[in-house]
Design a protein around this nucleic acid. Sequence first.
DNA 1: ATTCTTACA
DNA 2: TGTAAGCA
Length: 134
Amino acid sequence: MTNRDRKALPLFPISVVTELTELTARQVRYYEEKDLVMPVRSKGNRRLFSFYDVDRLLEIKELIDQGVNLAGIKQVLKVKTEQQEKVSHKEEAQEVKEDLSEKQLHKMLRRELMESGYLNSSSIVKGELSRFYH
DNA sequence: ATTCTTACA
DNA sequence: TGTAAGCA
């Protein structure tokens, strides 16, 4: 099982998510209704959230606190998710390879750090957000 | 006991 | 968004 799979495992009930994110259950359910997150359902129709879902909700929390509306959040999340997939695919390719040399490992880590930095850089975020501020 | 949906303030 | 009702 890959690390990416682990982060996608449906594990937490909504109570745990509210504690982890400081969001109310009402908000979490509302954001799901708006397709900002799509947790899986258990047999009893209970929502089960993955680490990915929690991370997404934390980002949503940040943007909401900054006064961004749902349309804006959706835009940002869309861009971020696309980037996330690119990184994940690269990691998947790396995971099948067994031993990496020190040099390769460092090169890989530096690339990931730069990409994550790019995702959170104010340039792209502000650029996307500017059009959605109230 | 906990979560879910629906509905109203 | 918060809260209450009635279910599962």
